[in-house]
Each structure stands twice: as structure tokens, then as C-alpha cells.
Simulated assay, not measured.
Amino acid sequence: MSEDPAGRGPAAVSGSAARPDARRSGSRRPVVALAVTAAILLALDIVTKHIAVSELSGRGPVRIVPGILDLELTRNSGAAFSVAGGATVILSLVALAVIAVVVFTARRLGSVGWAAVLGALLGGALGNLVDRIFRAPGPLRGHVVDFVHLHHWPIFNVADSAIVCGGVLAVVLSLRGIGLDGSRFGDDTTGRTGTTGPAGE
């Protein structure tokens, strides 16, 4: 068995060779978390909308918590929470753009927290886009199924909730100084300061 030219033993050489694989494995973790989060939210959105259409069609509001929460089926031609009604085609194109941005940004991911953010945004965008593509009145013009009604709040669905929760989590991570790559703002400065003292202090 050949020895490393730098004088290190075989174990040291094999250990250093294993580290890049470990780093690559760690770098894939946030991307996997993003994909799993998006898939779960998309499946949950599709299933709950199917149940809502089959159980709530032709019925009035179903009271869950009187004065607070009802289930009421509506068809929404706008964005989340019935905003921008009638702009379905534009909103469909915006959703496609959001999906493209999330997929592009995933290459820089090193944070599981940001993976959850992007997974929620991706799952929510896909959930409502599926409605706009496959539901009446036609592709890119389909109306989104909404059914959760909190009193004094527009009716919404799981996809809308995912988008909002993703946005809130993004604000929290930004306030904590956590970047997409998992580093904290100011870490580089701290590292440089730590090496200026004697003996690496």
C-alpha cells in the first residue's frame, strides 16, 4: 500500500478522501428537505380540495367552531385569499415563474430552514397551479378551490396557508441572520477576528 507523499499514513489519506463525500451528502440534505416538503404540501392540498369538492358542493357553510371557523366551498379566479380576481392567466404565469426561481435557488441551499421555506412556496404554488391548469373553465384559467373560512378573513386552502407560512418563516430566518447557504451574517468577520491573536486566539 502506497503512503501519502506528505508523510501521512494510509488512514489519513482515506479519511481525507472520505470528507468530500460527506460534504456532498450534507449538501444534498436541504434539497431533499425542500422536495419532501413540497411533495407533502402538494399532496395534502390536492386531497383536501378533492374532499371539499365532493363533500361541500351544493351545501351551505359547515360550522366547525361557531363564530370562528367554517368550511365553505368557493371557486377563486384570483390569487391567495381571493386577491386579484379575474387575473387567472397572469397569476398562472407568475406561479410558473415562482416555481422556476425556487428550482434555480435550490442549487445554493445549505440551510434546512430555508429548504422548508422554499418547499412551502413550491408546494403552495404547485397546488394552486394544478387547479388553474386542470379545472374549469380551461388551462391556465381554471378557478382555484377554496374552502377554509376563518371569520373576518377571506376563504383559503392548504396551498395558500403553505405560501403564507413559508413567507413568515423566511422573515424569521432573515431576522436571525441565516443565509440560504446556512451561514449566519457576520460569521466571516468573526472567523477573521478569531485568527488574529497569538496561537490562533
Rank of each mutant, 00 (worst) to 15 (best):
M1P: 12
M1E: 13
S2D: 12
D4P: 06
P5E: 03
R8I: 14
G9E: 05
G9Q: 04
P10R: 08
A11G: 05
A12E: 14
V13E: 14
S14K: 13
S16R: 15
A17W: 10
D21F: 15
S25I: 12
G26E: 11
S27A: 15
R28V: 13
P30Y: 03
V31C: 10
V31K: 13
L34P: 04
A35G: 07
I40V: 15
I40W: 07
L42A: 05
L44P: 07
D45G: 13
T48Q: 00
K49P: 00
E55K: 08
L56P: 06
G58Y: 02
R63P: 14
I64G: 03
V65R: 05
P66L: 04
I68E: 08
I68N: 02
L71R: 02
L71D: 02
G78Q: 10
F81A: 05
F81H: 02
S82H: 06
V83R: 14
A84D: 05
G85S: 11
G85Q: 15
G85I: 09
V89E: 12
I90T: 15
S92T: 01
L93I: 12
V94I: 15
V94N: 00
L96E: 08
L96T: 03
V98L: 13
I99D: 08
V102H: 00
T105V: 11
T105P: 04
A106F: 10
A106C: 00
G110K: 01
G113H: 07
G113A: 08
W114N: 04
A116S: 01
G119V: 03
A120L: 13
G124I: 01
L126F: 05
L126V: 09
G127M: 06
G127E: 05
N128Q: 04
L129S: 01
V130E: 04
R132W: 09
R132S: 02
F134T: 08
R135M: 12
A136T: 10
A136G: 06
P137W: 02
G138L: 13
L140G: 00
G142D: 07
H143I: 00
H143D: 15
V148F: 09
L150S: 07
L150T: 08
W153Y: 11
P154V: 10
I155V: 15
N157C: 14
A159N: 10
G166V: 01
V168T: 10
L169H: 08
L169K: 11
L169A: 11
A170K: 03
V171P: 01
V172T: 09
S174I: 09
I178P: 00
D181F: 09
D181M: 06
R184I: 03
R184V: 12
R184A: 10
D188W: 09
T189M: 13
T190C: 05
G194K: 10
T195H: 11
T196D: 14
G197C: 00
P198W: 10
P198E: 05
G200K: 12
E201P: 03
